[in-house]
Amino acid sequence: MQLKREDHIVFFGDSITEWGRDKADPTSLGHGYANFVAGHLAYHYPQYAFTFSNRGIGGDKVANLNERIQECLNLKPDMVILMVGINDVWHNVGRESFGSQTEQKRFEAEYRKLLTNLQAAGILRILVMEPFVLPHPLDRQDWRVDLDAKIQIIRRLVMEFGLEIVPLDGLMNEQAVLHSAQYYTGDDGVHPTLAGAAFIANEVVKRLTISDVPLSKEV
């Protein structure tokens, strides 16, 4: 995805995006992957005068982003880095709708609404981040029946809307095999450690270009 001079990049999502930001400070980026990405771009490309905003809120589902989309649009972003979906799984564990076709249809409708409204506002550069879960603790493996279907929905929508995607679920699980799940998401399989946040940031940076030249420097 190509960056342009003076782009305003907005990180929009749940706790993985929020991660420590001060909600009372509109310029706060927190200390998660959003801060790593912004710091990398600001340091290596000062002449491009990028600006950054973090509008992640812990616990948000896709429907919550739809409810507060105007908060994002008011910032007039040139690019949105979008990460949401894991709470649609997590908060539904143990309920009758978990993994059901009805639930997947609801999720698809909400995600479609979100992408439609972002594009209708003129935001055509949207980098979609897959939700993910790592297999520690072991019960997180039971989430796959619901999460896998949602990931496939997101991938179909990305193709339909002509967007770009970071396939984080596969990438993060590969790292878990190599180094352990706890190294990247601690004790809940979802919230990134320092290493996890840095890994996510690197995967974002790999997919950004300036004048069609990949940003090859790692975070």
Rank of each mutant, 00 (worst) to 15 (best):
F199M: 11
A197Y: 07
F161A: 00
D142R: 12
L178A: 13
P192Q: 03
A149L: 09
R207P: 08
G189S: 13
D187K: 06
L134E: 08
V128G: 04
R144K: 12
D142P: 01
K206W: 00
R155Q: 14
L134N: 02
G196P: 04
R140H: 09
F161V: 04
L127T: 02
I151A: 11
I151L: 15
G162L: 04
E218F: 14
A201R: 08
D142V: 08
F161Y: 15
L134F: 04
A149M: 12
N173A: 00
H191R: 05
L194R: 15
P137S: 05
G186P: 03
V177W: 04
F132L: 01
W143L: 06
K217L: 14
D188P: 03
R155D: 05
L194T: 15
D146T: 07
L138C: 03
A149E: 14
G162P: 04
G162R: 00
Q152D: 14
K217P: 07
G170M: 07
E130I: 00
Y183W: 05
L163P: 06
P214S: 10
D169I: 09
T209H: 11
L134C: 05
N173S: 08
K206N: 14
D142W: 02
R140K: 15
Q152A: 14
L194H: 11
D148S: 05
L171A: 12
A195R: 15
E164D: 15
Q175G: 01
S211H: 10
L215H: 04
I153K: 07
D187Q: 13
R140E: 07
F199D: 13
E203I: 05
P131D: 04
V204T: 10
L157F: 12
E160K: 09
V128I: 12
A176F: 12
R140S: 03
R207N: 10
V166M: 12
I165Q: 03
N173V: 01
L163W: 10
D148T: 01
M159E: 14
L208C: 09
A181T: 07
V177N: 13
G186E: 06
I165D: 00
Q141M: 08
E130H: 08
L147A: 00
F132T: 02
P192W: 10
A201N: 09
H191I: 05
V177K: 15
L157V: 03
I153C: 05
G162V: 06
A195Y: 13
T185S: 13
V213P: 01
L134T: 06
S211I: 03
R156V: 02
D188T: 01
A201T: 09
I154Q: 09
L147T: 02
